[in-house]
Write a protein that binds this DNA or RNA. Sequence first.
DNA 1: CGAGCGATTGAAAAGACTCAACCACCGTGG
DNA 2: CCACGGTGGTTGAGTCTTTTCAATCGCTCG
Lengths: 253, 253
Amino acid sequence: MTCISFNNHIYLVILLGSQKGRLMLDKSYKNVTCSTCLVRRDSLFANFCDNDTEHLNAHKTCSYYKKNQSLFLDGSFPRGVYCLNKGKVKIYTRGDGGKEHIIHIAKEGEVVGFRSMFGGEPYSMSAETLEESNICFISKDDFLNMIDTNPILRNGVMKELSKELSDRALALTNMAQKSVRERLAFSLVLLEDIYAGEEINLSREDMANFVGTATETLIRLLKEFKDDGIIDIHVRKLQILDEVGLRKIAGIH
Amino acid sequence: MTCISFNNHIYLVILLGSQKGRLMLDKSYKNVTCSTCLVRRDSLFANFCDNDTEHLNAHKTCSYYKKNQSLFLDGSFPRGVYCLNKGKVKIYTRGDGGKEHIIHIAKEGEVVGFRSMFGGEPYSMSAETLEESNICFISKDDFLNMIDTNPILRNGVMKELSKELSDRALALTNMAQKSVRERLAFSLVLLEDIYAGEEINLSREDMANFVGTATETLIRLLKEFKDDGIIDIHVRKLQILDEVGLRKIAGIH
DNA sequence: CGAGCGATTGAAAAGACTCAACCACCGTGG
DNA sequence: CCACGGTGGTTGAGTCTTTTCAATCGCTCG
């Protein structure tokens, strides 16, 4: 999707996409059972007792999402949380002029949408799938209720908020002090983890918005890395060959 | 304090400063009573019932801090939280090469040091006073205990974590997409709030590390703003004359 | 009074962005 | 089946912001 300027028209496009996705829900819908869900071990809902897992399962609904389908938009109020069973989701904000900045890319097992839930304010960012996804939904009331009654979940949530605050401080320092080249290397190390061995599959624009640079600059630097044998590129897919080298460039010790 | 490179020597200097401050504690020590503490209305401990306030008061200790005295250092484990009764504290990380980046400047009423407490990991940032300060301390055990038993505090903490995550996402997007000029304007609007009408009193280096730029660039831009009548400068102190103009430059609607 | 640090200024260099053009791929409709 | 149009990717060139380096200034403190 191309975004020329930040106006109502763009919002309209996204919403149409969302609607369309809902219509084909029946075709690709895949139900998930929490007790046997493999990615749950990495999620906020890990370490749940059988009872809690059953309760969770009873209160969640599963949906199929197409690529580039929106979960929620900046400015809307949280209606619940999304647990990624399959697929990846970008969390992004828009600066002046409408340019996206990708704050985070969530992978399987991650729970999305609860971070803005406690302030009673609307979302300050948007979430959109990067590929076909299966995502479970738990309503706000159910989730908040679980938080109140389940100390494991509560502690997990606080730990997660805490950790992300640190991560984001690091990201901020990186953005302030590192060159684009260093940031790209850093981002690739992150993406290596997010894509967990699979080839990294992002549009150049998304990757540039993740690194925080212009698309053209990103392409030039990727080429440099490729020429140096640090990465390999097949059309749009990207593979990391020398993570140690990347970490060195990124300044990760 | 000047920092040329990031090595053990620098840590040593900071620690000596801290020790020295502790020695002169008796001279400037000013006790505070929570029930009559005026800044508490803005803090996490607002909305406490009398009982809770009394409990808080019984478990806190007050200390005097000199300017540039460290509260905690990156890499150390949280021992408790700090409630600012008087004074300002910078929260910063260091990038490669040891250059500071100031993530946040805490003012009277703010509670510092709890954000890293829930992950069970050491601090990922450091905190240091920017001026003479009176700061109350609550130990980690007492604080965590209060969180477990006091829903008001717990909700306040989660709300705060939530809000800051949003703030930091915005900061990240700003850092990625705005020019230094825009970021400086943005930072000055923030500082205007932090210094609440008083003149902004920061070293050029600190201000540059807050904006995320080189000291020289900061100075040049400040001069531009001064020539445009947007701010006024007396030696090191800075006053905002035209906040509307600043917000316009910063791109805040 | 001299040392030293923070603030300031100037000039040059570098990094990154913008703009414009071009390419390659792909699905569509004639 | 092929021409067409659109989108995303790539390349080149010029520009501009920002940094870096070096030097100077001014103030404070011992």
